[in-house]
Design a protein around this nucleic acid. Structure first.
Lengths: 236, 236
DNA sequence: ACCTGAACACCGTTCAAGT
DNA sequence: ACCTGAACACCGTTCAAGT
């Protein structure tokens, strides 16, 4: 195999190496997170992907936590919201919750950052502004609206985080089919509950089927509606 | 310094070294968790505390995740419940939620295990049985009861987990006063929100005070009541 | 200002060897 | 069966040195 000389018209071939920048680091982090999960996302791994050493990242990002928060806000950018319509606040709030939940679910492992982060990124601000204006224009008291936004956000992030823990466990077992993993997992709990002494655990043994419903989306919506109905009860 | 011979009546002095056992490992883990936080809880640290090497633990505990789950169920043992009283289900459910929340808060860092764990430990079973019997005796449909138990547990663990993340951050900064840390932290967000352009963020800038209420307990109760009222609305 | 190699002080887990 | 030392394959972060 002979090596070809670079042709003369391609002058001063730029160094292959890309310039480092915060945006580049964050994007690389997101890519790793999505394809290999939170456990794989390390400063060293990001650096490797960018062809450099881990120390180089610290010129653009102060530590791993900050990197995670930046990735988190990047993801929040995927959530789109429209104009608040006071007459439809319930449906709009519900739609918002479902969409955020979906977006967080799509990037499973960022959910942890969602729980620890302070809402100061540009997208977090945008979404906070949206939720507040929706609830307040619907007639909710500002204090109630603030608490509601806080609690709803916690619920969404909490459910997504729980999901991400299952997802990580699945990956640790070398499995890939999310549906099948859940079915299997739930099946094991079912067997266990069924094997319990009915005298001591009459409820758990009687209602095994209800307790081991594998439909996570349905469970999420159930809790969401519980909260929304609670809000409605408080407003009228 | 002369060494004293062991007196003859103290026969066959047992080796000073304690026997390893799962219970001992779990207790040691809990002690480290409570006094130094999740970050400090490593297999190596537990082993060190017991005067041995990390490999020794693997004869009693299959991995770190299992250790965390065992610690978690040990902690759940602190939650006491009485007899379900159908006429008072709202108050009892509320009291249960507050107590679990308190117990998890006391052992801040176990909350992560609370979110990932499958409810199969003896105490998790006991508490699941209690919640189910409370809701069902109050007239709730079994399916609703199951979903409610699941969602309420998630909410409690989620809030505790969020709290533990703040706690960890505090410790990482070398601080010790929880109250002061929160005040400080909230103050910073307040300043930031106040500095935002009001045209772009009318809600966030107008309702800074409501949005930065530092009382975490009040926020927890707010969300709890939202859910309980949602349940009540569904039952009647 | 930005980047780097090398080092520091850690991890969880495995494995062959011991008792 | 239980315990061990040593090793493997990793971490996040710092720091002095380079450009």
């Amino acid at each position: 195999m002979t090596s070809v000389p670079t042709p003369p018209w391609r002058k001063s071939p730029k160094p292959v190496k890309q310039q480092l920048s915060q945006a580049l680091i964050v994007e690389t982090g997101l890519r790793i997170l999505d394809s290999e999960g939170l456990d794989a996302l390390s400063m060293r791994r990001v650096a490797q992907e960018l062809g450099t050493g881990p120390a180089s990242l610290y010129a653009h990002v102060s530590n791993k936590d900050e990197l995670l928060e930046l990735i988190y806000d990047l993801i929040l950018g995927e959530i789109e919201v429209g104009e608040p319509d006071p007459a439809n606040w319930k449906a709009q709030l519900r739609a918002y919750a479902l969409e955020s939940h979906q977006v967080l679910g799509r990037h499973a492992d960022v959910a942890r950052a969602a729980m620890s982060s302070v809402p100061t990124g540009p997208n977090a601000l945008r979404l906070g502004e949206y939720m507040m204006s929706l609830l307040i224009s619907a007639g909710m008291d500002p204090r109630d609206a603030s608490f509601t936004v806080d609690r709803l956000s916690l619920y969404i992030a909490g459910d997504a985080f729980e999901g991400s823990l299952h997802f990580a466990r699945m990956r640790a077992q070398g499995l890939n089919d999310r549906k099948e993993y859940i079915r299997n997992f739930v099946g094991q709990i079912k067997d266990y509950y069924q094997s319990l002494p009915p005298e001591q655990f009459p409820m758990l043994t009687t209602y095994v089927d209800e307790l081991t419903d594998p439909d996570g989306e349905q469970r999420f919506e159930y809790g969401l509606d519980l909260m929304i109905e609670g809000m409605a009860a408080r407003m009228k």
